[in-house]
Design a protein around this nucleic acid. Structure first.
Lengths: 199, 199
DNA sequence: ATGATCGAACCTACTAGTTGGTAGGTATTC
DNA sequence: GAATACCTACCAACTAGTAGGTTCGATCAT
């Protein structure tokens, strides 16, 4: 049924197109870039992009799938490096900092989530999966931290997970919108929140 | 120098256009709607909109100015109803809930902030003012609450203001993106944060 | 080895529809 | 009569997407 190309079997050229497309979405959103923009940046002609990705919806779906996959991998690496919940949450916040630190780029799914009503349904569905996966991971980490005594018990793990996720996504949006105004990045904001969760 | 129309002197027709434009931006973003969309919804022809607002940038600037003005008015009313800092912050969070509650609409400036790199500079500047005003108001309320003993002292008011603002903006983005998945609204999320700030 | 063949990658040239915006005319109202 | 609000008719630029041809390297049978 799913005839869409998979991100794991992309030619070098297709990979470059996905790279550029991801950056453009993070900067300008789904409706803020065109195939022509990609063509210019990749150094290829516009119809050649259609050769790799017949429709825009398909391309963005692949971009989103790859983004989510890489995010999941980052979470696994992070679990290997940090055993305790507080450190895991700090490292999680740092993932957002890394994205934002690179030219104030937004989280891809944060951007697409804001535009949810104006993008193809298949893309919106991928974005939904991203946030579902994040909520699950965060809730589990917080619940484990409470059981192991590294995090203060008595607060609902799911509610705290949502608070952290929303704060990090919001920090990127507000940070970009506030422009030059002094503004802490996602990492500092996340650190403050994690601190208040400590046992 | 500023030849742009002011939102306080709009004809009834112009006001309807601004109403519709605001809703469209909150749903689909700056690049997600067209003059044709407004025309359809208002029940007027497209060039008639250019009669009221020559350019899209000008229209959206007026939309944003009116939005910020109304927000400031809401803050003043809110101060009249609630004297203590915790209640003021809860009422503040409820402003976001009201917006989000109406068909999961995003904060206008949250949406435009995400698109900051893809919108006219004059609009981006207005958005920046919105967040600056919010940060100032929140920081003052929190600082006063600490002085009056209704909020726990020892935490940086500006940092807490930013955390609350980012969490509320993020809650709208994530909530919309998460779709049907169970998700607390901005009000519940804000309430949890305010609770942790209480003395 | 050689040459035919096939497919991937890319191109030029195009389409139909949409975009923001303009020109110029017609009612209505003060 | 003059401004306001609206209209029809248009424009150039851009949008995603298509048609059809070229180049080129790998794979084949001879």
């Amino acid at each position: 049924m799913n005839s869409t190309k998979h991100f794991s079997e992309l030619s070098p050229a297709a990979e470059r197109i996905v790279d550029v497309a991801q950056g453009l979405i993070q900067r300008a959103g789904y409706n803020g870039f065109s195939y022509e923009d990609i063509a210019r940046e990749v150094g290829i002609k516009k119809p050649s992009i259609h050769h790799h990705f017949p429709t825009k919806a398909e391309l963005v779906a692949v971009v989103t799938q790859r983004y989510m996959h890489r995010f999941r991998e980052a979470l696994l690496r992070l679990e290997g490096r940090h055993a305790r919940a507080p450190e895991r949450l700090l490292a999680y916040a740092d993932l957002f900092e890394q994205t934002y630190g690179a030219q104030r780029q937004l989280c891809l799914c944060g951007m697409l989530g804001a535009e949810a009503d104006a993008i193809p349904a298949e893309v919106a569905h991928e974005v939904q999966q991203f946030f579902k996966a994040n909520m699950t991971w965060l809730t589990d980490v917080i619940a484990q931290g409470q059981q192991q005594g590294s995090l203060r018990a008595g607060v609902d793990p799911a509610a705290q997970a949502q608070l952290l996720l929303c704060a990090l996504e919001g920090a990127m949006v507000v940070g970009r919108a506030a422009g030059r105004v002094a503004h802490q990045g996602p990492a500092a904001l996340g650190a403050a929140l994690v601190l208040s969760l400590r046992a």
